[in-house]
Design a protein around this nucleic acid. Structure first.
Lengths: 120, 120
DNA sequence: GGTTGACCTGGAGTCCACTCCAGGTGGGAT
DNA sequence: ATCCCACCTGGAGTGGACTCCAGGTCAACC
């Protein structure tokens, strides 16, 4: 059985707001979602999966413009796989840097906390 | 000798743009910076140190409104140290979550990359 | 003594990523 | 049958954090 998701279910499943879902469709991050007779969106399993990827990229700080480039590569077909790998590896590197940076800053914060503890 | 920093030096030292420095002063993140006879800013060592703290908080995703609360606690005197500890510990927890989240998402990205590698 | 160029101020503008709104349609429970 | 609620669309508005601009002042170097 091919599961189909109503807008409310897609919201539930992806954690994006309905407005964001519509916005992503409008700007082309999401391909035109199928509609029922009344024109209401019906998300496919694939849509939900793709939204999961978007959530991951977004939550790791990828700008929408870059996600858009990735979306276009995906749409363009399998011959873009090397480009997709390159894009994701680039991003992975940036995520790595983010983590390292946060860890570094966290040390400073913790130092500050212990300093405050000591002067109490 | 008490080192004093010109605007350009403060920019160099803190990594904030001059506009950002002025903006931080305007909104009260930075206390009114001393001026020379001509009205130009002269940052003290202390200003630079405080800016270092701000940079750390900002780079770990603390919103300006929260930094402002922290700034006010610092200004209010030593009796706010327990509050400052609470605020920083709260923030430290959020940084921890950010790191965990990034690491989790990164696994997904890497899985995706290896998947692409396999289908090549 | 003229010309840079670093700096000043108040205020407007920008960018990103949504988020909200008005006005309208359809479908499902009572 | 009626009511409500989930949806729809196009477009305007928001919030956060800057960033830029116009018009002006000094100071220093040639």
């Amino acid at each position: 059985m091919t599961t189909v998701y109503t807008p409310a279910e897609a919201v539930e499943e992806t954690g994006f707001s309905l407005d964001t879902l519509r916005y992503y469709e409008k700007i082309g991050l999401l391909e035109r979602v199928a509609r029922n007779a009344a024109g209401q969106r019906r998300f496919t399993e694939d849509d939900i999966g793709w939204l999961g990827t978007l959530r991951c990229l977004r939550d790791t700080g990828m700008p929408i413009a870059t996600m858009l480039r990735f979306a276009e590569l995906v749409r363009a077909g399998d011959h873009t796989i090397p480009d997709r790998i390159k894009l994701l590896e680039e991003h992975d590197k940036q995520v790595q840097e983010q983590i390292a940076n946060l860890a570094e800053r966290q040390r400073y914060i913790r130092t500050k906390i212990s300093y405050y503890r000591r002067v109490l």
